[in-house]
Design a protein around this nucleic acid. Sequence first.
DNA 1: TATTGTTATACTCTATAACTATA
DNA 2: TATAGTTATAGAGTATAACAATA
Lengths: 158, 158
Amino acid sequence: MSKLIDAQLRELTGYTLRRATTSVMPAVNRVLEPFGLRRITYSSLVIVVRNPGLNQSQLADALAVERPNLVQIVDEMERDDLLSRERSAFDRRAYALSATEKGAALEGEATKVISAFEAAVTAGLSAEQVKTLHKNLEIIEANAAKLEKADERQVQTS
Amino acid sequence: MSKLIDAQLRELTGYTLRRATTSVMPAVNRVLEPFGLRRITYSSLVIVVRNPGLNQSQLADALAVERPNLVQIVDEMERDDLLSRERSAFDRRAYALSATEKGAALEGEATKVISAFEAAVTAGLSAEQVKTLHKNLEIIEANAAKLEKADERQVQTS
DNA sequence: TATTGTTATACTCTATAACTATA
DNA sequence: TATAGTTATAGAGTATAACAATA
Protein backbone atom coordinates (compact mmCIF):
# COMPACT_ATOMS: atom_id res chain seq x y z
CA MET A 1 0.00 0.00 0.00
CA SER A 2 2.45 2.62 1.21
CA LYS A 3 4.71 1.57 -1.61
CA LEU A 4 2.18 2.84 -4.11
CA ILE A 5 1.31 6.05 -2.29
CA ASP A 6 4.55 7.78 -3.22
CA ALA A 7 4.71 6.36 -6.75
CA GLN A 8 4.88 9.78 -8.39
CA LEU A 9 7.68 10.93 -6.09
CA ARG A 10 9.62 7.77 -6.90
CA GLU A 11 10.02 9.17 -10.42
CA LEU A 12 12.13 11.97 -8.96
CA THR A 13 15.86 11.50 -8.56
CA GLY A 14 15.99 13.86 -5.60
CA TYR A 15 13.33 11.91 -3.71
CA THR A 16 14.70 8.47 -4.49
CA LEU A 17 18.19 9.63 -3.59
CA ARG A 18 16.97 11.06 -0.31
CA ARG A 19 15.09 7.90 0.61
CA ALA A 20 18.09 5.68 -0.09
CA THR A 21 20.42 7.95 1.88
CA THR A 22 18.06 8.14 4.85
CA SER A 23 17.93 4.36 4.89
CA VAL A 24 21.65 3.75 4.49
CA MET A 25 23.12 6.36 6.86
CA PRO A 26 21.84 4.94 10.16
CA ALA A 27 23.03 1.52 9.03
CA VAL A 28 26.52 2.89 8.38
CA ASN A 29 26.50 4.55 11.80
CA ARG A 30 25.69 1.24 13.44
CA VAL A 31 28.59 -0.43 11.68
CA LEU A 32 31.02 2.27 12.82
CA GLU A 33 29.73 2.65 16.37
CA PRO A 34 31.73 -0.29 17.83
CA PHE A 35 34.90 1.47 16.63
CA GLY A 36 33.96 4.72 18.33
CA LEU A 37 33.66 6.28 14.89
CA ARG A 38 30.90 8.09 13.06
CA ARG A 39 30.66 8.62 9.32
CA ILE A 40 32.56 11.86 9.20
CA THR A 41 35.36 10.70 11.49
CA TYR A 42 35.77 7.46 9.53
CA SER A 43 35.90 9.38 6.25
CA SER A 44 38.41 11.80 7.72
CA LEU A 45 40.56 8.97 8.98
CA VAL A 46 40.61 7.25 5.58
CA ILE A 47 41.70 10.46 3.89
CA VAL A 48 44.33 11.41 6.46
CA VAL A 49 45.86 7.92 6.42
CA ARG A 50 46.29 8.13 2.67
CA ASN A 51 47.21 11.83 2.53
CA PRO A 52 49.42 12.48 5.55
CA GLY A 53 50.41 16.08 6.10
CA LEU A 54 47.34 17.68 4.54
CA ASN A 55 45.81 20.56 6.44
CA GLN A 56 42.31 21.13 7.79
CA SER A 57 41.19 23.31 4.91
CA GLN A 58 42.20 20.66 2.41
CA LEU A 59 40.45 17.97 4.41
CA ALA A 60 37.31 20.09 4.74
CA ASP A 61 37.39 20.73 1.00
CA ALA A 62 37.84 17.04 0.17
CA LEU A 63 34.91 16.05 2.40
CA ALA A 64 32.68 18.97 1.40
CA VAL A 65 32.45 20.06 5.04
CA GLU A 66 32.58 23.69 6.16
CA ARG A 67 35.85 24.58 7.87
CA PRO A 68 34.25 25.58 11.17
CA ASN A 69 32.49 22.24 11.39
CA LEU A 70 35.71 20.33 10.83
CA VAL A 71 37.32 21.84 13.94
CA GLN A 72 35.27 19.80 16.38
CA ILE A 73 35.69 16.71 14.23
CA VAL A 74 39.47 16.97 14.35
CA ASP A 75 39.26 17.85 18.08
CA GLU A 76 37.36 14.63 18.69
CA MET A 77 39.82 12.53 16.72
CA GLU A 78 42.81 14.14 18.39
CA ARG A 79 41.27 13.52 21.82
CA ASP A 80 40.77 9.85 20.86
CA ASP A 81 44.43 9.68 19.77
CA LEU A 82 43.53 8.84 16.17
CA LEU A 83 45.39 11.71 14.56
CA SER A 84 47.73 14.55 15.45
CA ARG A 85 47.96 18.22 14.55
CA GLU A 86 51.45 19.55 13.93
CA ARG A 87 52.24 23.09 12.89
CA SER A 88 53.23 23.08 9.25
CA ALA A 89 56.87 23.98 8.65
CA PHE A 90 55.92 25.85 5.48
CA ASP A 91 52.89 27.77 6.73
CA ARG A 92 52.66 28.43 10.41
CA ARG A 93 48.95 29.18 10.20
CA ALA A 94 48.20 25.62 9.17
CA TYR A 95 48.23 22.27 10.91
CA ALA A 96 49.66 19.23 9.15
CA LEU A 97 47.38 16.30 9.97
CA SER A 98 48.61 12.74 10.27
CA ALA A 99 47.16 9.54 11.63
CA THR A 100 48.57 8.03 14.80
CA GLU A 101 49.47 4.34 14.90
CA LYS A 102 46.23 3.74 16.73
CA GLY A 103 44.33 5.74 14.11
CA ALA A 104 45.89 3.86 11.21
CA ALA A 105 45.16 0.51 12.84
CA LEU A 106 41.57 1.48 13.59
CA GLU A 107 41.06 2.62 10.02
CA GLY A 108 42.22 -0.78 8.79
CA GLU A 109 39.83 -2.67 11.04
CA ALA A 110 36.89 -0.38 10.30
CA THR A 111 37.50 -0.58 6.57
CA LYS A 112 37.21 -4.37 6.67
CA VAL A 113 33.80 -4.13 8.28
CA ILE A 114 32.73 -1.34 5.98
CA SER A 115 33.65 -3.50 3.00
CA ALA A 116 31.44 -6.29 4.29
CA PHE A 117 28.64 -3.80 4.87
CA GLU A 118 29.12 -2.45 1.36
CA ALA A 119 28.59 -5.95 -0.02
CA ALA A 120 25.42 -6.40 2.02
CA VAL A 121 23.94 -3.05 1.05
CA THR A 122 24.56 -3.63 -2.66
CA ALA A 123 23.26 -7.21 -2.57
CA GLY A 124 21.48 -8.01 -5.81
CA LEU A 125 23.72 -5.74 -7.87
CA SER A 126 26.78 -6.87 -9.82
CA ALA A 127 30.13 -5.15 -9.36
CA GLU A 128 29.62 -3.49 -12.70
CA GLN A 129 26.16 -2.27 -11.77
CA VAL A 130 27.57 -0.77 -8.58
CA LYS A 131 30.32 0.92 -10.55
CA THR A 132 27.77 2.39 -12.95
CA LEU A 133 25.63 3.51 -10.03
CA HIS A 134 28.56 5.36 -8.48
CA LYS A 135 29.46 6.95 -11.80
CA ASN A 136 25.92 8.15 -12.37
CA LEU A 137 25.63 9.48 -8.83
CA GLU A 138 28.78 11.50 -9.42
CA ILE A 139 27.32 12.90 -12.63
CA ILE A 140 24.23 13.97 -10.70
CA GLU A 141 26.34 15.44 -7.90
CA ALA A 142 28.26 17.51 -10.46
CA ASN A 143 25.08 18.59 -12.27
CA ALA A 144 23.53 19.80 -9.02
CA ALA A 145 26.72 21.60 -8.00
CA LYS A 146 26.76 23.39 -11.34
CA LEU A 147 23.12 24.43 -10.90
CA GLU A 148 23.86 25.79 -7.44
CA LYS A 149 26.84 27.75 -8.70
CA ALA A 150 24.77 29.27 -11.49
CA ASP A 151 22.09 30.17 -8.98
CA GLU A 152 24.59 31.85 -6.67
CA ARG A 153 25.88 33.97 -9.52
CA GLN A 154 22.34 35.00 -10.34
CA VAL A 155 21.69 36.06 -6.76
CA GLN A 156 24.88 38.09 -6.63
CA THR A 157 24.25 40.00 -9.84
CA SER A 158 20.57 40.65 -9.28
CA MET B 1 43.46 17.46 -6.78
CA SER B 2 40.69 17.22 -4.23
CA LYS B 3 38.94 14.87 -6.62
CA LEU B 4 41.66 12.30 -6.08
CA ILE B 5 41.99 12.73 -2.32
CA ASP B 6 38.77 10.86 -1.58
CA ALA B 7 39.25 8.21 -4.29
CA GLN B 8 39.00 5.33 -1.84
CA LEU B 9 35.80 6.68 -0.32
CA ARG B 10 34.31 7.04 -3.79
CA GLU B 11 34.30 3.24 -3.96
CA LEU B 12 31.74 3.23 -1.15
CA THR B 13 28.04 3.42 -1.98
CA GLY B 14 27.27 5.16 1.32
CA TYR B 15 29.80 7.90 0.67
CA THR B 16 28.88 8.46 -2.97
CA LEU B 17 25.20 8.48 -2.07
CA ARG B 18 25.81 11.00 0.69
CA ARG B 19 27.81 13.30 -1.55
CA ALA B 20 25.17 13.27 -4.28
CA THR B 21 22.37 13.91 -1.79
CA THR B 22 24.24 16.77 -0.11
CA SER B 23 24.73 18.34 -3.51
CA VAL B 24 21.17 17.86 -4.78
CA MET B 25 19.13 18.81 -1.70
CA PRO B 26 20.05 22.51 -1.51
CA ALA B 27 19.37 22.76 -5.25
CA VAL B 28 15.89 21.27 -4.76
CA ASN B 29 15.26 23.69 -1.91
CA ARG B 30 16.13 26.62 -4.15
CA VAL B 31 13.69 25.42 -6.78
CA LEU B 32 10.87 25.13 -4.25
CA GLU B 33 11.59 28.32 -2.33
CA PRO B 34 9.69 30.64 -4.70
CA PHE B 35 6.57 28.54 -4.04
CA GLY B 36 6.96 28.85 -0.29
CA LEU B 37 7.60 25.11 -0.18
CA ARG B 38 10.42 22.98 1.15
CA ARG B 39 11.16 19.40 0.18
CA ILE B 40 9.00 17.78 2.80
CA THR B 41 6.01 20.05 2.23
CA TYR B 42 6.21 19.56 -1.53
CA SER B 43 6.38 15.78 -1.09
CA SER B 44 3.46 15.90 1.34
CA LEU B 45 1.42 17.99 -1.07
CA VAL B 46 2.03 15.58 -3.96
CA ILE B 47 0.90 12.64 -1.86
CA VAL B 48 -2.15 14.33 -0.37
CA VAL B 49 -3.34 15.57 -3.78
CA ARG B 50 -3.21 12.02 -5.11
CA ASN B 51 -4.46 10.31 -1.95
CA PRO B 52 -7.13 12.57 -0.52
CA GLY B 53 -8.52 11.49 2.85
CA LEU B 54 -5.44 9.73 4.10
CA ASN B 55 -4.46 10.43 7.70
CA GLN B 56 -1.27 11.76 9.23
CA SER B 57 0.06 8.37 10.25
CA GLN B 58 -0.33 7.09 6.71
CA LEU B 59 1.36 10.16 5.32
CA ALA B 60 4.21 9.89 7.82
CA ASP B 61 4.62 6.24 6.92
CA ALA B 62 4.64 6.95 3.19
CA LEU B 63 7.28 9.65 3.58
CA ALA B 64 9.36 7.77 6.17
CA VAL B 65 8.94 10.65 8.61
CA GLU B 66 8.32 10.17 12.34
CA ARG B 67 4.76 11.05 13.32
CA PRO B 68 5.78 13.79 15.76
CA ASN B 69 7.80 15.53 13.06
CA LEU B 70 4.89 15.49 10.66
CA VAL B 71 2.72 17.53 13.01
CA GLN B 72 4.54 20.80 12.41
CA ILE B 73 4.74 20.06 8.70
CA VAL B 74 0.97 19.69 8.45
CA ASP B 75 0.56 22.72 10.74
CA GLU B 76 2.63 24.78 8.34
CA MET B 77 0.69 23.61 5.30
CA GLU B 78 -2.65 24.19 7.00
CA ARG B 79 -1.56 27.69 8.00
CA ASP B 80 -0.59 28.37 4.36
CA ASP B 81 -4.02 27.11 3.27
CA LEU B 82 -2.53 24.26 1.21
CA LEU B 83 -4.40 21.45 2.93
CA SER B 84 -7.09 20.88 5.50
CA ARG B 85 -7.51 18.56 8.46
CA GLU B 86 -10.99 17.12 8.91
CA ARG B 87 -11.95 14.67 11.63
CA SER B 88 -12.43 11.27 10.06
CA ALA B 89 -16.01 10.03 10.13
CA PHE B 90 -14.82 6.48 10.74
CA ASP B 91 -12.22 7.10 13.41
CA ARG B 92 -12.53 10.24 15.48
CA ARG B 93 -8.92 10.05 16.59
CA ALA B 94 -7.70 10.61 13.04
CA TYR B 95 -7.63 13.54 10.66
CA ALA B 96 -8.50 13.08 7.00
CA LEU B 97 -6.11 15.23 5.01
CA SER B 98 -7.04 16.81 1.71
CA ALA B 99 -5.51 19.53 -0.44
CA THR B 100 -7.23 22.88 -0.78
CA GLU B 101 -7.77 24.38 -4.23
CA LYS B 102 -4.79 26.61 -3.57
CA GLY B 103 -2.73 23.60 -2.51
CA ALA B 104 -3.66 21.59 -5.58
CA ALA B 105 -2.86 24.51 -7.88
CA LEU B 106 0.47 25.13 -6.18
CA GLU B 107 1.38 21.47 -6.48
CA GLY B 108 0.73 21.64 -10.22
CA GLU B 109 2.95 24.69 -10.69
CA ALA B 110 5.73 23.36 -8.49
CA THR B 111 5.69 19.99 -10.23
CA LYS B 112 6.31 21.66 -13.58
CA VAL B 113 9.42 23.36 -12.24
CA ILE B 114 10.54 20.23 -10.43
CA SER B 115 10.29 18.31 -13.70
CA ALA B 116 12.54 20.84 -15.41
CA PHE B 117 14.97 20.61 -12.50
CA GLU B 118 14.87 16.81 -12.74
CA ALA B 119 15.93 17.05 -16.39
CA ALA B 120 18.80 19.40 -15.50
CA VAL B 121 20.06 17.28 -12.64
CA THR B 122 20.06 14.07 -14.72
CA ALA B 123 21.68 15.76 -17.74
CA GLY B 124 23.98 13.31 -19.48
CA LEU B 125 21.86 10.29 -18.55
CA SER B 126 19.26 8.68 -20.78
CA ALA B 127 15.72 8.08 -19.55
CA GLU B 128 16.57 4.40 -19.28
CA GLN B 129 19.71 5.09 -17.27
CA VAL B 130 17.71 7.24 -14.88
CA LYS B 131 15.13 4.50 -14.52
CA THR B 132 17.86 1.97 -13.74
CA LEU B 133 19.42 4.37 -11.27
CA HIS B 134 16.13 4.74 -9.41
CA LYS B 135 15.57 0.99 -9.40
CA ASN B 136 19.03 0.33 -7.99
CA LEU B 137 18.66 3.05 -5.37
CA GLU B 138 15.45 1.37 -4.25
CA ILE B 139 17.23 -1.97 -3.99
CA ILE B 140 19.88 -0.34 -1.82
CA GLU B 141 17.24 1.40 0.30
CA ALA B 142 15.54 -1.95 0.90
CA ASN B 143 18.83 -3.73 1.65
CA ALA B 144 19.76 -1.12 4.25
CA ALA B 145 16.30 -1.23 5.81
CA LYS B 146 16.59 -5.00 6.12
CA LEU B 147 20.00 -4.69 7.78
CA GLU B 148 18.64 -2.16 10.26
CA LYS B 149 15.69 -4.38 11.09
CA ALA B 150 17.96 -7.35 11.70
CA ASP B 151 20.16 -5.17 13.90
CA GLU B 152 17.20 -4.01 15.96
CA ARG B 153 16.12 -7.57 16.57
CA GLN B 154 19.62 -8.40 17.73
CA VAL B 155 19.61 -5.52 20.20
CA GLN B 156 16.24 -6.54 21.59
CA THR B 157 17.13 -10.18 22.13
CA SER B 158 20.62 -9.60 23.51
C1' DT C 1 44.50 41.93 1.45
C1' DA C 2 43.85 36.92 1.73
C1' DT C 3 43.98 32.53 4.18
C1' DT C 4 44.11 29.04 8.38
C1' DG C 5 42.04 27.77 12.17
C1' DT C 6 38.75 29.10 15.53
C1' DT C 7 34.50 30.61 18.33
C1' DA C 8 29.85 31.48 18.54
C1' DT C 9 25.59 30.75 16.83
C1' DA C 10 21.45 29.27 14.42
C1' DC C 11 18.63 26.51 11.61
C1' DT C 12 17.06 22.09 9.76
C1' DC C 13 16.43 17.28 10.17
C1' DT C 14 15.76 13.31 12.80
C1' DA C 15 14.51 10.54 16.89
C1' DT C 16 12.35 9.28 21.42
C1' DA C 17 9.43 9.53 25.55
C1' DA C 18 5.18 10.59 27.31
C1' DC C 19 0.71 12.56 27.21
C1' DT C 20 -4.82 12.86 25.51
C1' DA C 21 -8.51 11.10 23.26
C1' DT C 22 -10.32 7.73 21.13
C1' DA C 23 -10.68 2.72 19.56
C1' DT D 1 -4.44 -2.63 25.39
C1' DA D 2 -3.50 -0.32 21.13
C1' DT D 3 -3.58 3.63 17.94
C1' DA D 4 -3.85 8.84 16.19
C1' DG D 5 -2.25 12.99 17.04
C1' DT D 6 0.41 15.93 19.99
C1' DT D 7 4.06 18.19 23.05
C1' DA D 8 8.56 18.61 24.57
C1' DT D 9 13.08 17.74 23.88
C1' DA D 10 17.62 16.38 22.34
C1' DG D 11 21.06 15.17 19.11
C1' DA D 12 23.08 15.31 14.56
C1' DG D 13 24.34 17.86 10.50
C1' DT D 14 24.94 22.08 8.11
C1' DA D 15 25.71 27.09 7.41
C1' DT D 16 27.40 31.95 8.20
C1' DA D 17 29.73 35.92 10.49
C1' DA D 18 33.62 37.48 12.75
C1' DC D 19 38.00 37.16 15.05
C1' DA D 20 43.51 36.33 15.81
C1' DA D 21 47.60 34.78 13.73
C1' DT D 22 50.07 34.44 9.74
C1' DA D 23 50.93 34.85 4.76
